[in-house]
Design a protein around this nucleic acid. Structure first.
Lengths: 224, 224
DNA sequence: AGTAGTTTTCACAAAATCTACATAGATGTG
DNA sequence: CACATCTATGTAGATTTTGTGAAAACTACT
């Protein structure tokens, strides 16, 4: 299976690296560009870029300009990274044909989810809309969980955490690791907040709750 | 296969030696630097350093500064050694692009495990996720052991100890040696605690327990 | 601003693990 | 075989890690 190419455009190399690492792990081929000109160059040189992740704030040529130049020739899906969702921005963006906004800071997990949703929508997608394991059905699109057919009310974080567990079932996940994918990249609070979420998840999952196992001295793991 | 180069930066030569010894044994080529300036110098002189292990606390130029200077030109993975996980530190470090933290004191075994995990993630990796010997399967990722297909519940130390034995099967291991790799480097307690762990391991391993042999007057050995 | 819902922190209880120690057993030596 | 060493094992206390409930902080929506 060939990997889809995603172009990541941001002037901060740290941010590119963060996004790149996660997308690579999720099965994409990642190209980077550090500024707008480079981005446009790369896009027209590489013929088969499937999607662009584009930061708004950049020196030289900003995200809007890049978007405009690319839209003049291509309908490639574009995801914009913006600081704190700004309605004016969104308006501008939709006129230019931006497909999606993600406010910084985001969690890596969310970014991947949005990318997959768009690629699925535009027919290039690969991954599933629903996950299923041990009677637990996760509908990513509806953001809904059912256990043995019964809908279960989960909060946002609980939902994200549960899907993360299921996507990584059988793997011992340290709190560190969980924070780095489910939480926003700028979260540096107490890792014990995970314990609290696990507690709530377990209780909401009823007797199925015990498939989230504690790995003592390490973290948690979804029983396989 | 050529050995990957790792640069170890710490002002304490004792610490450098500790880390160096272990990494060398694990198949890496180790370069040392005793302070920040030396580190930056060495990094730019040597062209192909695969990873940097960097102490935070150093005279002259501290770890953050080194990190910053190197990040200005390179995305080489950096592991920071910090005193007892300090949240403020992590915030600073994240902005600078640190890949991983290890709190002092650590066990050499853990350090190597993290290094391998990062190199694997960045595609340079080499080592295995699972070990297998005599029906004992060690799944490092799941942090799980099965014996003849049956899962066995081991504590953290027991797990580390068993993998250490299997990684060194057929070699007589003194208690000294075991302490120096499985225990944190600042442990100076009774070496006889190993006996207790061996006892528990043997009992949890059932009839397979006897492949951990006592080497009288010396230590232990996993029967080959 | 007020409210409901969510997320995070905190403090203490509970559990699991680790270590030290005492004693019993095993091994090697002359 | 007696003695000195070293190892096995059970127990209990110390330490570390996790579970839990409640309070505080934060969000989103009126």
């Amino acid at each position: 299976m060939e990997r889809l190419k995603v172009l990541v455009v941001d002037d901060e190399s740290r941010m590119r690296k963060l996004v790149k690492d996660f997308l690579t792990k999720s099965g994409y081929d990642v190209l980077e560009a550090g500024d707008g000109e480079q981005a446009v160059d790369t896009f027209f040189k590489e013929k088969d870029i499937a999607l662009i992740v584009l930061d708004v704030m950049m020196p030289k040529m900003d995200g809007w300009q890049v978007c405009k130049e690319i839209r003049a020739y291509s309908q490639v899906p574009i995801i914009m990274l913006t600081a704190r969702s700004d309605e004016q921005d969104e308006l501008t963006g939709f006129k230019l044909g931006v497909d999606e906004y993600i406010a910084k800071p985001f969690s890596p997990k969310i970014l991947v989810a949005r990318i997959e949703a768009i690629l699925r929508r535009t027919g290039q997608g690969s991954s599933e809309d629903t996950l299923e394991y041990a009677g637990i059905v996760i509908d990513k699109v509806a953001h809904q969980v059912t256990i043995d057919g019964q809908p279960v009310d989960l909060s946002f974080k609980e939902f994200e955490l549960l899907t993360y567990f299921i996507e990584n079932k059988g793997i011992a996940l340290s709190r560190e690791k969980i924070l780095n994918s489910v939480w926003n990249y700028d979260y540096f609070g107490d890792a014990r907040t995970i314990d609290t979420h696990v507690k709530k998840l377990r209780s909401k999952m009823g007797e199925k709750g015990n498939i989230i196992r504690t790995v003592w001295g390490m973290g948690y793991k979804l029983e396989e």
